[in-house]
Design a binder for these strands. Sequence first.
DNA 1: TTTGTATTGACCAATCCGGTCAATAGGAGT
DNA 2: ACTCCTATTGACCGGATTGGTCAATACAAA
Lengths: 207, 207
Amino acid sequence: MEPKFLALDQEKQDRILNAAMEEFAGNGYKNTSTNTIVKKAGISKGLLFHYFSNKKELYLKIYDYFVDLFLSEVQEKVDWEDKDIFNRHRQMASLKIKLFYQYPNVFNFLNAAFTENAQDLRGELESRRERFINHNYREMLQDIDMSKFREDMDVSKMIEIISWSMEGFAYKQQAKFKGLSLDEMDLEETLQELDRYIEVLKYSFYK
Amino acid sequence: MEPKFLALDQEKQDRILNAAMEEFAGNGYKNTSTNTIVKKAGISKGLLFHYFSNKKELYLKIYDYFVDLFLSEVQEKVDWEDKDIFNRHRQMASLKIKLFYQYPNVFNFLNAAFTENAQDLRGELESRRERFINHNYREMLQDIDMSKFREDMDVSKMIEIISWSMEGFAYKQQAKFKGLSLDEMDLEETLQELDRYIEVLKYSFYK
DNA sequence: TTTGTATTGACCAATCCGGTCAATAGGAGT
DNA sequence: ACTCCTATTGACCGGATTGGTCAATACAAA
């Protein structure tokens, strides 16, 4: 990210980042107007182009910034010694929720970036995608303690079902949080709710 | 749908419908150009506007057409006497796959329509959404035989996990089918693969 | 008052798009 | 071969929108 931009106070940075991500996530690259972004962020057009030299750079800088932020967070905060698949998922969920509090549209934005196919971004994005998916799910689920699973069912299918459940839960939570203010969202409560699903899965799939 | 349009031979109809759905699904309403649709469908611009009076009508007519098609199919083909949740899901999956063969983008289109927020469509779409979600998931999962579930876990959570797994499976299959020709996709094989996941879930959640 | 930086927003050239319509193609009937 | 009618074409246009610029202003510090 540009040093000029990073010198801004955090609140203004976040206003701009969130405005841009919300628009990009909701409308795609091409159909997002810089006019809308500046209006939503409460800054002038000129200022946006003072920080980012053009729309394409705005998009890619934000993309890189958050991929880095998230991946380094994961690398750093996850306890890689713990080989229990549910604990791994729970830790990831916790990180995601924390990031979600500050940037409610990061994951929508990153998901959208995954299916984005604007001409201007082709190539630039394509080379970046692999990194993200490799890191996110491969690394996370490798090195798992398989011996805990019941032996009368297909382990890989159980693992898939667990992932799908985590995604389903995340999606459900996000819909629930839509439109709520920050202090109405309770991290602990959400994690406890998640634990109840984990309980069901653990009880079903573990020995 | 316009009678003029329905008088076309099926193959041309489908070419137009699929082209439109693919574009609308991938780029959203506003960012979809009728120029692209006609190019992809292999017809002239004039002809499209001969069948559909304008872009908005094109979108909504297609939406209504496929919602009706799918819902009536469900109403008609599902065996409502069978109260087993897995059989219900399996039947729904079978219907979806069949429709997917003829219209590979119906569900992408309908999903996109669900989050579409173009100014021109607001209101028109909003009033239509409720109907779809009510029918699709409420009706499908009501009237289920709960007595088959284990009693030491939360039934509603198991039901959610089952739904999330079906969605995850569908998503995975669709990614797998991406770019394949019709005759490379095998309905029976897909259903058998689905059955293996159902087996795991049934074994875990049923008494 | 001066100087230097942060910020504004009117402005513009370029692009693109939905929709029209005069013209043509092509088939059926005679 | 000719007529008639419908199906289909695609060049064309007014209007809307956009990314990006830049001269002007606001503001803070000295």
